[in-house]
Design a protein around this nucleic acid. Sequence first.
RNA 1: UAACCUGUAGCUCAAUGGUUAGAGCAGGAACCUUAUACGUUCAAGGUUAACAGUUCAAAUCUGUUCAGGUUAACCA
Length: 1135
Amino acid sequence: MANKYREYQGLNLPAMEQEQLAQWTDELSFEKSVTIRDGATPFVFYEGPPSANGMPGIHHVISRTLKDLVCRYKTMQGFQVKRKGGWDTHGLPIELGVEKELGITKEDIGKKITVEEYNQKCREAVLRYKDKWDDITRKMGYWVDLNDPYITFKNEYIETLWWLLSELYKKGLLYESVSIQPYSPAAGTGLSSHELNQPGTYKDVKDTSAVAMFKAVQNDKSQFLFDASNGEELFYMAWTTTPWTLPSNLGLTVGPNIDYVLVKTFNPYLHNAVNVVLAKPLLGKFFKPEGENGDFDGYTADTKLLPWKVVTEFKGSQLEGLQYEQLLPYEANSLTAIHEITPGAEPFRIMADSFVTTEDGTGIVHTAPAFGADDYKVGKKYNIGILTLVDKQGKFLEGLGEFSSRYVKNYKDDANYVDVNVDIAVKLKKENRAFKVEKYEHNYPHCWRTDKPILYYPLEAWFIKTSAIKERMVEMNKTINWKPKSTGEGRFGNWLENMVDWNLSRSRFWGTPLPIWKSVDSDGKYIDEKEGGEQICIATIAQLNEEIKKANEVLGGDVNKNYLHEGILDLHKPYVDDIILVSPTGKPMKRVPDLIDVWFDSGAMPYAQWGLDYEKLKAGDPKPFKNNFDGAFPADFICEGVDQTRGWFYTLHAIASLVFDSVAYKNVVSNGLVLDKNGNKMSKRLGNVVDPFTTIEKYGADATRWYLITNASPWDNLKFDIEGIKEVQRKFFGTLYNTYQFFGLYANVDGFSFKEAYVPVKDRPEIDQWILSSLNSLVKKVTTAMDDYEPTQAGRLIEDFVDEHLSNWYVRLCRRRFWKGEYEHDKICAYQTLYECLETIVRLIAPTAPFFSDTVFRNLNAVSQRFTEESVHHVLYPVADEAVINQALEDRMQLAQDASSLILSLRKKVNIKVRQPLQKVLIPVLSATMKQHLQQVEDIIKSEVNVKEIEYLSDTDGFISKKIKPNFVALGKKLGAKMKAVSTALSQFGQNDITQFEKEGKYSLLIDNEHVILQINEVDISSEDIPGWTVANKGSLTVALDINITPELEQEGNAREFVNRIQKIRKDNNFDLTDRVIVKVSGAGALQTSLTLFKEYICAEVLADELELEAEINGGTDIEVNDISFKTIVLKKEG
RNA sequence: UAACCUGUAGCUCAAUGGUUAGAGCAGGAACCUUAUACGUUCAAGGUUAACAGUUCAAAUCUGUUCAGGUUAACCA
């Protein structure tokens, strides 16, 4: 137990933090903060795993500060908050990093380097910067369990993923299907969206585009069109920039609400009369206004201006279901061929869907389901079948006449390549099937490796049928508390509404393998389920090992010979791919080549971080995870960047909903980005990345954390400016530190250790009651904000309190109480009050400023021993004492602060120093209550502004001029439209009108010949002027200052000036606070009267035993008081 | 292209639909201080991104546009 409060030479946050950090490590403070809550209600937190193959940045500090402060806060509220760390270790960035390091590309894998070696490299690379991450975690004060993190590449982790996948498989929610994906025929591989988003992949290119004419079939449904065309043949016009997709056309899509027209005109190439259908808003793209209702009879091949006329108009929905003749019929795309692929398909029909726009083209979309995701979707809905008449090399199949086997784009850099798209367009022209053919420049994606245009192509992929439980996911999302709300309702909510099945498949090497084995034929090709293929989804390592043995027994030979003894030791490629299993009917099975989306890894962390419990599994427990899982699902709280909305936030939600019909988290905070101070995104390229290590070393973690939290709401983007941290350091921590230093300085002198009995608040001076009332109000407000996950509000409230109330009002007004007088009642009250404020503040800020708060807490507690806990992070969060809150008192003090500030501003205006006492202040009072309130704080105002008396003016004195204005809130609802007239009427009120209104309590106005009765509480009356005086006002408070300086006042002022000079000398000579002195003065001249008159006062102030006026002194200091110069000597009395 | 977020003083942020749009910082001027860190006061700084609408009343609500950002990508 210390008997002195620790004092510092100056505020050095980084040094303080290092010391505190060492202490935490020694004492295992974090571990204790968890264990001391054993048996308490758990507050469940999930750590979103970062990837440790890159350096941590300042943007990681903000989300981790948020996580940390919530966890610390909840711990202080008595919850037990376990925090298991984790690492995300799979994924493309890791692969790309390794490839860069080794100078290889994906094609080299399996050639220059084995998959085994490659994956070994990845495994080594993933935790490359783990040390740096651990370091920043410690230095920023993020309390998370780093000793036992979950790691997504570990077998136990992957095994849990497998088990989850097998559950989905059992429920029929995991299925294989084609999906239309970006595909590079030149590279022979599918591309991920990430690869498609590499810079430079989208290029402006010129392609042959064609407006094709699809001939309408006449039947009952289309009769209305044929009626309009007088029975002539008519065509639906559709535009494409990829004519090679036309042979695969199976439908046309229109917008149901778009207006379409049937136009009579001529074919611009063949010059025969035609009737065409297109969207009305796009008429202008094809027809000139001058040609409307032009000369049809006189039209010849040489006529430049195409005559046209609208024959009829209708909605897109009227076209739905109409049929047309196939555009380019061949053997390969015959109805028979279509039915072979999709039995029962009904192609060549018009469909309606909202994706159609009238931005360009014709408003009728040529639909080839194989080559567009939208096409595929709408085609499936209408069951028009699917044709993939292009192979994986990018060339047409056989059976397409003159186009057979031709490349649809120049994928081989063939110098003699003839563009098949042009030939198709020419053919259409000749056959009266093209209305317009032209080169069209557009932005089209290219393969980043081969620079060749990609195409959208149907590829096999494994999906999770999230759409099956869409409604349930939407419903459960509504129970989640999102911060900010809009992310949950807007971004996430809309995402759920438009949810499509989750494409799990990834063609990679380093990741979680999909545990599905399919039977293969003698060539090693997978057998489709329709052709009697079998498949199995493995759930656990044990099951796999059993199946390995079984396959060996059934199939014999060398099958799985390397895995028979110890079973499988690593669940990654290439080992899993070695393994051959056996189907129920005795056929060999091979694993499908896919890895799964890394987002599944992290989305499964609530379960996989613990791993499977084999006993529970055997017992058939629906949640067979290790015991730590119990009570740790779902999470109470998670927090990550807003970029995780469709990432981790989604996958957590999806897996929990699918497998357990539960939410995965109850509260989620999504924080915004950290931008540089100019609002640009931080990137290595721009060199504007802020290194969190230097920032923390230089300014301290607490200042950084406090800045990040209080500067802007966490979900707003933050423009990071180091100046902001400096300001926080100076203003907030500086002020708090000074308050502590001030307290320590005097408490050490007086030996205050809180050993006296707690003085009941009601027995303390009013100013103590006031600061304690404010303190408790603060506790209440801060708790509300923290409970609402609004740390920014909480922080700002605390800042205001520390700065405005505690430091600049309470301490300033009370300074004397700490250094004057004996150690008795009033002084003890002051110490107890200030101590309580400091102690409460450090507990309030502990979640956000963990270092500084703990240091100060320990310094205080070392002397007082008020808490048995050794750290502020182990004590409970303050709870407001309602009995101490006195709103009226707080209001009064506000009045005193306002009045003082007004009076000081008047002093400034007339240039009279505060040290010069003045006689009187005039304050007009509008009611007895107002007068009473002011009287209660009169002494404070008087001493603060150095004025002898306050005179209250009531309206009976006839001194005040009053103003009246409507109380808009109260009157607005009552009056509505008459508001303006009433406002005008009130502004014209004279003093007599106001007096009458006040006397009667109501007033009748004639507005638009109607009587309107106003009540006195529906208007605001204020005094803004005292005729003949200089006044200042704020709200309803007005003050006037008597600026007459009488000789007496002047002498007192001189005395105070003199005291000030002596104090400065004391300070310059480094005298102790308690040193007694003797003061000698010579040549005081005109000041002599003052010094004699106020001798007692001066001596008391400067702790002088003697004040001697001498004719002549040797040496001494030259000083000046109000233009009078003289000499003085201040001597310390020894002993 | 869409969904979502943001736009207020030179900068960072406030302002339950209610009438002089406020703080802090920076820059200018002065004052105060036995906490030497600050603080107080004054002056200056605004078409609340733009336009339209709703309303007695709009920074706030509704549209449209512009700019910045995030995410996702279907361009026929």
